[in-house]
Each structure stands twice: as C-alpha cells, then as structure tokens.
Design a protein around this nucleic acid. Structure first.
Lengths: 228, 228
DNA sequence: TGCTTGTATTTTGTATACAAGGTTTTGCTT
DNA sequence: AAGCAAAACCTTGTATACAAAATACAAGCA
C-alpha cells in the first residue's frame, strides 16, 4: 500500500502536522502495533516526505505519550501495560468527575440542549449496533460536557488521556452487554447536570469510567497472556 | 552576555534537550518575557548551535504550553492571562487533592519519613527567609507526595501544570505574611497522610492551592494594569 | 565452543542549503 | 499627501548532507 501523503492531504497544514495525524491514526487503530520501531527513513519513504517532518511528528507523538523515544536509538510505538492504563484511568476518573461538577455550574442552556441531543444520539446509535457510530456519538457527548466547563486546559488534558483509551475503545464498545448500562449512565449524568446536582453528576462520571476500565483491563490481560 | 552552550552543558544530553532546558529556564525565570518572539536564527547564534535543535526545543516547549506557535510566523513566549492561570489552577487543585488521597493509601514508611524531613526542611527554609531555599524545599516536599502515588502519568501532568505556576512562584513566596500558613498547611497534609485520613488530606491540598492562587492572581492583575 | 574485539552498517543527531510564504518598505499613481 | 502595488527582505518549512553513536556481525583467541 502506497499512500503518498501529498494526495490525501489536508492540503494546507504543515507537513509535520499531516504526518503527525497520519501516524497518530495508525497507532490508535492498531495499524502500528505497540513496540513496533519507527524508523525515520522508512516512514519518510513510505509517506513521500523527508526525514524532517517525520522527526517533528514523532517528537510530538512522544509528548502525547503514544511513542517512546530513546536517545540515539530511535522511537517505537508506546507499549500499553496494565499499569500505564491504570495510571491513565485513575487521572481520567478524577478529571471527568471535575468536568461534571464544573458543568453543573457553568453549562449554558444551549449546551444543555446539545447534551440532550447527544444523549438521544448515543441511544439511537446503540440501537443500530454500529460500533463506529456508537464510538463517535460517545465522544461527541463527552466533548460537550468538557467544553461546557470552559476550561481550555482541562479540555486539552482530557483529550490527551482519552487518546490512550481510544487504543482500546472497540473493546468496551464491542461488549454489547454493557450498552444499556452506558445509555443509563449517560442519562444519569445528563439529568444530574440539569438538576445542578454535583454529587450525583461526579459520582456517575466516575462510575462511567470504572465500568469502561473493567473491559479495557480485561482486554489488556488477554493480550499479555497471548505474548507469554 | 554570551553563553555558548557547549561549555556549561551538561555534556551528554542531546543538544535539543540542552536548548530546551535553557529556554525553559529563561521563560520560567522571566528572562524571556511573555509575548517575546523567538526567532530561530537569533537563538541559534546566541546559543552557538544550528537551527535544528532550536526548532525541536521550541516545538517541545509549545507542547508544554510555555510557547505559542503560529504556522509560518514563528513562536513567542506564551502569554499568561488570568483566565489561563485559573484554568491551570482549577485542574491542579483537583489533581493535588487526588495525590493526597492516593498517598494515604500507597505511601511507604520510607517515603513517609522523607516527607517528615521535607516538612522540617521547609520550615527551616522559611526561618532563614531565603526565597530560593523556600522554593526548592517546597517543590521537594510536593514531589515526594506525588511520587508516593506511584502514578507516573499523574506525576507528569502535575509537573507540567506546576511549570505554569513557577512563572509566578516568587510572588507567593515573597509574600512573607503567608509563610506561617504554608508551614501549617504542610503540617496538616503530612499529619493527615500519616493518619490515612483522606478527607482532611485532600481538603488541605485544595486549600493549599487556593491560598497560592490568591497571590498569583493578585500579581497577574497588577501586571495587566501596568500594560493598560 | 564461547567470548572478546574490531569493523561494517545502520540509524539518529546536527548543520546547512534551498523553497515558499509573510512582512515591510519603497516608489508610483492619483 | 494618501493609498496601493510591487519588490526586497525576513522567517519559517522542508530536504539533504555530513558526523557521531549504536548495533550487528565476523574473525581471532582462549
């Protein structure tokens, strides 16, 4: 598969950003597997650019935590261990709870409306059983809540932490037995934000993460057994 | 002032990291002021290296939030607004509280001992009135708590958020009227971690940030008035 | 056979050259 | 004199060349 960037780009972004997005996508979808080495020349040839934008993209990915960099040895796709995922989820849990609380204080009528629609959308997506749709509407819903906090830094951090989870997203979305739970949790979060009930909102946000955590950790254990 | 890097470096780090540390330091101490443009060639000449490591360092600083990058126009030192500082502190407050709670569960006897020493050190530093010492012992103390959580991601995030505050650190350290409060708050945090009392520990951690917030925001308002 | 050392190769790190986009200045026109 | 256009210049973006470190491999020695 040859996919010279200059064609499917995204035409006006700097090359480093195009490369960044391409590699990021490849890592999140699993096309580039954890532990896989990222050789600059190979990638440069493959994407039809020079080493410079590749290097810059790789460094950016390292800061995002998707790539591990060893000086003088190069880069590889970051390994996902149970420990690292636990670390991520522990922080994410707290920040999601914070989001829910802040949203109670700061959400506008319009955003509240959007949130309602997002809940309905998610429910509809679950009914169709289309994993891609479910994933998208889930992201959209949470994005509304985070944005409602009006805290740009919080938005940035949560986006970054979510990225790590996206690498396992399909694992908990494929688990159809949990679908009703997800819908229900979304409803509780929505309703408690409407009621400005911070306690319930934050508790629900944490539960929401805890439930997803179970699926994700189960999957990680399965995979680590395979490689033993 | 000419400070050719090749001399005071830190000899075995990649140049990009040396440059990164140098620029970071310059921004945190205020030697490079908010809004100041960062021209690659100037910095390269000044530090005696080529543009390449400068670029890489600047990009890294952008990801850390210390630098703002505009495509095709270059980089400048990130402006600190009251809004952005509020955003940072809001997140930091929550994460520090999380740290305190986790530390209650996970701190080892040895770390507890270190923490005790760090408290004493801080108190001693306050007595000398040496701002630099106070700042250092304060960082050391909080570092112990964050490390005691055993959560690498949390450590990384808090370090990054702290960075923003360090740009104003002297403001709340110079405020000697608050020194006794700081000592007292540290003591409360220490004692509640000893007692495994999560409620108190997390509440104290939040208060600790709230108090610092006041000094920092006051200072930001002063500065913004000046430039009106 | 197993270990060490030296050499060849691969790969990253840094410098530099060149291209292209932005900005400022200058000169012309009205 | 003011406004616009063009050209000169800066500055970043990208490619390439060269240097230095790390690795892999092979040959010699115990």
């Amino acid at each position: 598969m040859k996919d010279n960037l200059l064609e499917n780009m995204n035409a006006f972004l700097p090359l480093r950003d195009v490369v960044f997005n391409t590699l990021r996508q490849a890592i999140l979808t699993g096309e580039l597997k954890p532990g896989e080495r990222l050789l600059e020349i190979h990638l440069a040839d493959r994407l039809g650019v020079s080493r410079t934008p590749i290097r810059e993209a790789i460094h950016k990915l390292e800061l995002e935590g998707l790539v591990t960099l060893v000086p003088r040895r190069g880069a590889e796709v970051a390994q996902i261990t149970e420990k690292s995922m636990n670390d991520v989820l522990e922080v994410r849990r707290t920040l999601d709870a914070l989001c829910a609380e802040l949203a109670c204080d700061r959400i506008t009528e319009e955003e509240l409306n959007d949130l309602k629609h997002a809940c309905d959308n998610f429910e509809a997506a679950v009914k169709t059983g289309d994993f891609k749709k479910i994933a998208q509407s889930d992201v959209a819903l949470h994005d509304i809540i985070v944005r409602a906090t009006g805290n740009a830094r919080l938005l940035q951090l949560i986006n970054n932490l979510s990225e790590q989870m996206y690498r396992y997203r399909y694992e908990y979305i494929k688990d159809t037995s949990q679908h009703e739970t997800l819908v229900e949790e979304h409803r509780i979060i929505y309703q408690s934000i409407v009621n400005k009930d911070k306690e319930t909102a934050s508790a629900a946000a944490m539960t929401h993460i805890d439930n997803q955590k179970r699926s994700i950790i189960r999957k990680i254990r399965q995979e680590s057994k395979k490689t033993d």
